[in-house]
């Protein structure tokens, strides 16, 4: 049978919104859609798919690539292999998709952000969105995909009837990888999600010694200082100050990004800000595609000039 199988993500009892992008892509692909979910007291829109398969296991054991491949094996035994096995481009999708591809001997294309139905081509980012590769599975074989969040949500159409519900039980849990616990982020006295005005710095600031000068600018402008992933990775700013999918999602009135090129994971964490202003010396920086206002200049010079004007 010809179908698309979506492995849904549920975290801390929430059916993640990015699952709708997987549903949207499945709709574009024009296949019968089977949504595979863990047990839990969460709500799913009942007309979201043709069939919903509920695994008799909790979210922590479900999104474990070793367990998941065994469960998929059970599903494939009943329905045959799907034409498309779809995950989200997320922490769990990024490990379950390649592991499943290796396990079942299927090709894989990750971070898919567009699909050309006529040509059967998937668009995948290269070099932080500076170019895109047009890929297809060789010989039209079945393929494993991960989907970039926000890319296909609007293609997710409601079915006319509620999904057929099936159950998958008799699941064997692996000893090879076992969930122990969730670990919360360290507490911070500053909550960047509450700020009206964020001054956010990226790799472009060059080195840690520049941080105090940007902190000073933030203080003068009454902004809160935040940063993109490279700045947090290098420990120039603490983790609670990170904007992006693995950090915080923010929606301030003004987001002033200095020296941030705009990796997708960063954009996803700030794109709903009321006003985005980007300063970068790289005219090709992807962030200019999402910003409302842009300045192409050396960020340190902009910083110093702003301070000079503010100081009067």
């Amino acid at each position: 049978m010809s179908y698309a199988l979506i492995v849904a993500e549920v975290r801390r009892g929430v059916f993640e919104e990015r699952n709708l992008d997987s549903v949207g892509l499945a709709a574009l692909l024009g296949k019968e859609t089977v949504l595979f979910v863990p047990e839990g007291p969460y709500q799913i829109p009942e007309k979201i798919a043709d069939t919903i398969v509920r695994a008799k296991t909790a979210e922590e054991t479900f999104l474990n690539p070793l367990n998941l491949t065994k469960m998929l094996e059970q599903i494939f035994a009943g329905r045959g292999k799907p034409d498309y096995l779809i995950f989200t481009q997320s922490s769990s999708g990024m490990e379950c998709a390649p592991y499943s591809a290796g396990f079942f001997g299927l090709p894989v294309i990750t971070d898919v952000s567009a699909y050309d139905k006529d040509k059967g081509i998937f668009y995948k980012s290269y070099y932080s969105d500076k170019v895109f590769g047009e890929f297809k599975p060789a010989g039209g074989a079945a393929v494993v995909l991960t989907v970039r969040s926000g890319s296909f949500k609007e293609c997710a159409a409601e079915r006319s009837v509620a999904a057929k519900i099936e159950e998958l039980s008799g699941i064997a849990e692996t000893e090879g990888r076992v969930f122990i616990e969730y670990v919360e982020e360290e507490k911070s006295d500053i909550d960047i999600t509450k700020a009206d005005f964020l001054l956010s710095v990226g790799r472009g600031i060059g080195n840690k010694d520049e941080i105090p000068a940007y902190e000073d600018l933030a203080n003068k402008l009454k902004a809160v200082l935040s940063g993109s992933r490279p700045v947090i990775d290098k420990m120039w700013l603490p983790k609670p100050r990170q904007v992006g999918t693995s950090g915080k999602t923010v929606k301030p009135k003004v987001y002033l990004a200095m020296g941030i090129s705009g990796a997708f994971q960063h954009i996803a964490g700030m794109k709903d800000s009321d006003c985005i202003i980007a300063v970068n010396k790289d005219t090709e920086a992807p962030i200019f595609q999402y910003a409302h206002f842009g300045i192409i200049a050396d960020i340190h010079k902009v910083r110093d000039k702003l301070k000079e004007i503010v100081n009067g």
Partner: peptide, 26 residues
């Protein structure tokens, strides 16, 4: 084993884009 093939490379689709501020630094 079944693989994937690259058909061609393209530039990203341009979105709205920012209003660029221009002129001298000040």
């Amino acid at each position: 084993a079944p693989g994937i093939e690259i058909v061609r490379w393209t530039y990203p689709a341009k979105k709205g884009g920012a209003t660029m501020l221009a002129g001298e630094l000040d």
